[in-house]
């Protein structure tokens, strides 16, 4: 009887463990594999003067929120996403229009006291000057 109880406990713990790692990995993958195209399409192409690569804040947050809201509920029902805009090579918050870097922080409740909390920074770089 005890053996059966221990076996059940082990089984439940294994399933829980699997569930936790599956969720954490899923959220992590969602964050790490955020499609670059979401950022690319948020860069305004039509500029009358010389081209400056910067994010349209509203467009980018809309794109990212749409993407995460589609992906994250599979792994957690309780999550928050924060967007922090800055400029390439800077860490201070960008209040202006020409912000070309974004830090995305995802916090999600996995189970009991286990939470996911990670950030990714994406920025526009001039590859060829």
């Amino acid at each position: 009887m005890i053996i059966i109880a221990i076996a059940l406990l082990v089984m439940v713990m294994s399933v829980q463990c699997f569930s936790v790692t599956y969720r954490i990995n899923g959220i992590n993958r969602t964050l790490l594999e955020t499609p670059i195209s979401l950022f690319e399409v948020a860069i305004p192409l039509i500029q009358d003067d010389e081209f400056i690569a910067y994010f349209d804040k509203d467009e980018l947050t809309k794109n990212l929120t749409y993407y995460y809201d589609n992906k994250l509920p599979k792994y957690s029902s309780d999550y928050t996403i924060n967007y922090y805009f800055s400029k390439t090579g800077e860490t201070s918050y960008c209040l202006g229009k020409m912000c070309n870097a974004i830090e995305i922080r995802i916090r999600a409740k996995i189970i009991f006291l286990t939470n996911y909390d990670k950030s990714m920074r994406f920025e526009v770089r001039e590859a060829h000057s």
């Binding site: 860069i43 192409l45 690569a53 990714m120 994406f122 526009v124 770089r125 001039e126 590859a127 060829h128």
Partner: peptide
């Protein structure tokens, strides 16, 4: 034209780079 405007870093003038913080 030497480069695309936006795309991967090898073939484009501007590229998006992501890193964990």
């Amino acid at each position: 034209a030497s480069y695309n405007l936006i795309g991967d870093c090898d073939t484009s003038q501007y590229c998006i780079v992501g890193e964990q913080v």
